[in-house]
Measured scan of single mutants.
Amino acid sequence: RLRTTITPEQLEILYEKYLLDSNPTRKMLDHIAREVGLKKRVVQVWFQNTRARERK
């Protein structure tokens, strides 16, 4: 399986959204995914991984 490459522009948007809410609802994930042009599951995993990194 190929990994999804997230561009610096997409990362910037994702981090902005993360600062507003680190645990977004399904509806918010849909909205964020459309905004950055990624699949909802990719955005969901990015948020999970970012939360895990923050806990370390």
Rank of each mutant, 00 (worst) to 15 (best):
F47P: 00
Q44D: 15
T5F: 05
T7D: 06
K17H: 04
T25I: 03
L19C: 10
L14Q: 00
M28S: 08
K56D: 13
I6Y: 12
N23Y: 10
R26Q: 15
R26P: 07
F47T: 01
S22I: 04
V45F: 02
N23K: 10
K56S: 11
K56V: 06
T5S: 10
K40P: 14
Y18L: 04
R34C: 07
Y15S: 13
R1M: 13
I32E: 00
N23W: 07
R26G: 08
Q10R: 02
D30H: 06
T5Q: 13
H31T: 14
R53I: 08
L19N: 10
Q44H: 09
L29E: 14
S22K: 06
L38F: 01
D30V: 06
E12Y: 04
R51G: 08
W46Y: 02
R41Q: 15
S22A: 13
M28V: 09
Q48V: 08
E54F: 12
L14N: 15
D30E: 10
L38G: 00
K27V: 13
L2P: 07
V36P: 02
E54C: 01
K27N: 09
T5P: 11
R51C: 06
V36M: 08
Q10C: 01
I32R: 00
P24H: 01
H31Q: 14
K39N: 08
A52E: 15
P8Y: 02
S22E: 14
Q10F: 00
V45P: 02
R34I: 04
R34G: 13
L2A: 10
L38R: 01
R3T: 15
L14W: 00
R53L: 12
N23C: 02
K17M: 11
L19Y: 08
G37D: 10
Y18P: 01
L20T: 07
T25F: 05
E35I: 08
L20H: 05
Q10L: 03
R3L: 11
Q44C: 14
R3H: 04
K17L: 03
R41Y: 12
K40Q: 09
E35C: 05
V43M: 02
V42W: 04
N23A: 10
R51Q: 15
D30S: 10
R55Q: 10
I32A: 01
P8D: 09
H31F: 06
I13T: 08
R1V: 10
S22Y: 01
R41N: 14
F47W: 12
W46I: 00
V36C: 07
Q10D: 14
A52F: 04
I13C: 05
F47V: 00
T5W: 05
L14P: 02
L20D: 05
K56F: 02
E54M: 10
L2I: 09
T7S: 09
T50M: 09
I13S: 11
E54P: 03
L19V: 10
T5I: 12
Q48M: 08
R41A: 15
E9H: 06
Y18M: 01
D30T: 12
W46P: 01
F47N: 00
V42I: 10
K56I: 06
D21T: 04
I32W: 07
V42E: 15
Y18S: 00
M28W: 03
L2S: 14
E12I: 15
N23G: 09
D30R: 08
K56Y: 15
T4S: 10
Q10I: 10
L38N: 00
V43Q: 01
Q10S: 03
L14R: 01
P24Y: 00
R41V: 12
Y15P: 01
I13N: 08
T5D: 13
T50S: 12
E12G: 11
R51D: 08
H31A: 12
Y18H: 01
R51I: 13
L14I: 01
M28C: 10
T5C: 10
R34D: 03
K39A: 14
K39D: 13
L19A: 09
L14Y: 01
R3I: 15
V36Q: 02
V43K: 00
R55S: 13
T5G: 09
N49F: 05
K40V: 15
K17R: 06
R3C: 14
N23Q: 12
I6D: 01
R3Y: 12
T25G: 05
R41I: 11
R55F: 07
K27T: 08
R53S: 14
N49T: 09
I13P: 02
G37Y: 00
R53E: 15
F47D: 04
E9Y: 06
T4F: 10
I13Q: 14
L19I: 14
E54Q: 02
F47K: 00
N49K: 04
G37H: 04
P24K: 00
T25H: 03
V45I: 10
Q44E: 15
T25K: 08
V43P: 01
Y15D: 11
T7W: 02
F47C: 00
R53M: 13
T4E: 13
I13A: 12
R41D: 12
L14E: 00
V43F: 01
K17S: 08
E54L: 07
R51H: 15
W46C: 02
Q10N: 02
T7N: 07
D30K: 13
Y15N: 13
E12D: 10
I13Y: 11
N49C: 06
Q48I: 02
R26Y: 15
K27W: 06
I32C: 03
M28R: 06
R41W: 09
R26I: 15
T5V: 12
Q48P: 00
A52H: 08
N23R: 12
V42N: 07
H31D: 12
K17N: 12
N23S: 09
A33D: 03
N23P: 04
F47M: 03
R34Y: 14
G37M: 04
W46T: 02
M28I: 09
D30N: 02
R53A: 11
D30M: 05
L19G: 11
V43W: 01
R51N: 14
L11F: 08
R26A: 13
W46H: 01
N49Q: 09
T25P: 08
V43S: 02
Y15W: 12
L38I: 11
I32D: 01
Q44N: 09
L19P: 00
T5R: 05
D30Y: 12
Q48R: 08
V43E: 00
Q44L: 09
E9T: 09
K17Q: 11
K40N: 12
L2Q: 03
R53Y: 03
K56G: 14
V45H: 06
L20K: 12
N23D: 11
I6R: 00
V45C: 05
R53Q: 13
R51M: 11
P24M: 02
T50H: 11
P24A: 01
L2Y: 08
R3P: 11
K40D: 09
Q10K: 03
R34K: 12
R55A: 13
I32Y: 07
T25E: 13
E12Q: 12
N49R: 04
Y18G: 00
R55C: 12
I6S: 02
T25C: 14
S22T: 10
K27G: 13
A33W: 02
T50C: 05
L14C: 00
A33T: 05
D21W: 03
E9S: 08
Q10G: 02
R41H: 14
L29M: 04
I32N: 00
V45Y: 11
S22D: 12
A33P: 03
P24D: 02
M28E: 11
L29W: 11
E35D: 06
R26C: 14
L38T: 00
L29Y: 07
K40M: 14
V36Y: 03
A52I: 07
A33G: 05
N23I: 09
K39M: 04
E12W: 04
E35H: 06
K39Y: 15
I32K: 01
R34E: 14
Y15E: 15
L11G: 11
T50E: 15
E9P: 07
S22F: 08
D30Q: 09
L11R: 11
V45S: 05
I6V: 06
